[in-house]
Amino acid sequence: MPPFATKLAHGFTLLLALVLLAMVGLSAGNVVARYLFNAAILWADEIAVFGMILLTWLGAIVVAWRGSDIRMDLLVAALPRGAQRPVAVLQDLVVAGSCGWVAWLSYGYVTRVHRIGMTSDSARLPVWPVHAVIPVALAAIALIALVRALRTLRRPQTK
């Protein structure tokens, strides 16, 4: 992968790491506020959960980028060398197809959430941006898989 893309992925992950630190601070801060000052932050859990949804889906893009998704590699690893390449291409194409499909479905859902103007229960924030991370992440994962499939195909047979 080109160096600028690696840098971009790294910076993106650092940003998500800061989100995690903020979530920890908010949850622990809520304990302090309630226990010491008898004044719980009523929206703390809701915002922390939004943070977790962000981490999950945007983090999944980086996971896909690094190719470190959790999968059962038992059978494919046992295949002969020559079969590995077509299998890898087919895997990437299936991932691209299914994530692309669901990203499209999900996009339709998010536009409807936006149109209805749905808000969160406690903080009363619009929720469509949180929903939108799912189609964004799935589209990015589909794109990464597609690029990977093309690169594998173009790579010379002998390595």
Partner: peptide, 29 residues
């Protein structure tokens, strides 16, 4: 007064009367 109370929601209509009574609303599943 002074009671940490899990209330049935996060809206002001649920919580403000409890705060007026001196309770401290907590949001919890």
């Amino acid at each position: 007064n002074g009671v940490k109370l899990r209330t049935g929601g996060a809206t002001p209509l649920v919580n403000d009367p409890m705060i007026a009574l001196g309770a401290s609303p907590v949001s919890m599943p």
